[in-house]
């Protein structure tokens, strides 16, 4: 594990100068790989370490994306500030609803978060400030860094979310989360403030997911409820996490990279087969790798 984490760190750092030699196509492909990897790392904080499957985590992708867009357009904030505040908005929302939501566990929790995602999509499709079903147009980035900037922002979010996972793996904070995952009653009777810790984990997940959503919004320059609350993104994130290994530091990286690269290749060659491949991967993971590529303890 130690070695794999170091490998992930080195690979991540090595990818910073890559746009110098990459074509625009591969720059975009890798940016979307980084995006999925970051989302998977965010989910790993919650499902992997805390044991709560937030199947509708993309709700916070949407909230982060919309918050960033609205802050840029209506409040005129620069992107960097809008992005951070957008992430915080997603995170605060999560932290506020966590004590109630996280009284539910496993399937019930998963379904409730999905309901949240769908409800928010409906809400955002009917509000004035979000542009309703028409969505919001964002300005196109015309700075001197060009499109590379999105590659680097996504890569930095990936790096940050990897470091968060690494910290959780090693720290006392992480032990509290793992204790909640293993047995919440035992954690509570050991004196762990379970409500606080799992709410913080939920907030961290939402913060990273919101940052990714905000960056995505600026990257594609147009958002609507359908694209920002896309259930397929939830599915991809979960498949990547299960494939790589739940509750491991290197798992999300391995899972998201292999899934997104394979899916990109299939997508470019056989557009209509894309969904089939995703389905086949899910089946193979369940049948052959129930603990993911890196066999996890919680698997």
């Amino acid at each position: 594990m130690e070695k794999l984490s170091k490998l992930v760190l080195v690979l991540t750092l090595l990818m910073y100068p890559l746009p110098l030699i990459l074509s625009g196509y591969w720059e975009r492909v890798l940016a979307s790989v980084f995006m999925l990897t970051s989302l998977t790392y965010a989910q790993n904080v919650l499902l992997g370490y805390t044991g709560y499957p937030a199947f509708g985590a993309i709700a916070f992708f949407g909230v982060g994306g919309y918050a960033t867009a609205i802050l840029m357009i209506k409040a005129g904030l620069p992107f960097g500030v809008a992005l951070i505040v957008g992430g915080l908005v997603a995170s605060l929302l999560a932290f506020a609803i966590a004590p109630a939501l996280m009284r539910l566990k496993s399937h019930y929790f998963a379904i409730t978060t999905l309901a949240l995602q769908i409800a928010l999509a409906e809400l955002f499709a009917n509000l004035d400030i979000t542009g309703g079903a028409y969505g919001i147009n964002l300005p196109i980035y015309r700075g001197f860094l060009g499109t590379q900037i999105f590659y680097h922002i996504f890569l930095s979010i990936l790096l940050g979310s990897f470091l968060v996972n690494l910290f959780i793996e090693k720290s006392r904070f992480g032990y509290a989360l793992k204790a909640i995952r293993e047995d919440e009653i035992a954690a509570e009777s050991s004196g762990v403030n379970t409500v606080l810790f799992k709410s913080v984990a939920f907030g961290i997940m939402a913060f990273i997911t919101g940052l990714v959503g905000g960056t995505y919004a600026y990257w594609i320059t147009y958002i609507d409820p359908e694209s920002m609350f896309d259930p397929l993104l939830s599915v991809k994130m979960f498949v990547a996490l299960l494939f790589g290994g739940v509750g491991t530091v290197a798992g999300p990286f391995i899972g998201a990279f292999s899934l997104e690269l394979v899916s990109e290749l299939v997508w470019s060659k056989f557009v209509e087969l894309h969904g089939v491949v995703l389905g086949v991967i899910i089946l193979l993971v369940i049948l052959l790798l129930p603990g993911g590529v890196l066999k996890s303890r919680s698997g």
């Binding site: 793992k178 204790a179 995952r181 293993e182 047995d183 009653i185 035992a186 954690a187 009777s189 303890r297």
Partner: peptide, 10 residues
Amino acid sequence: PEGRHLFLGM
């Protein structure tokens, strides 16, 4: 607690 509630994966 009843049923020994331990952290079985630790």
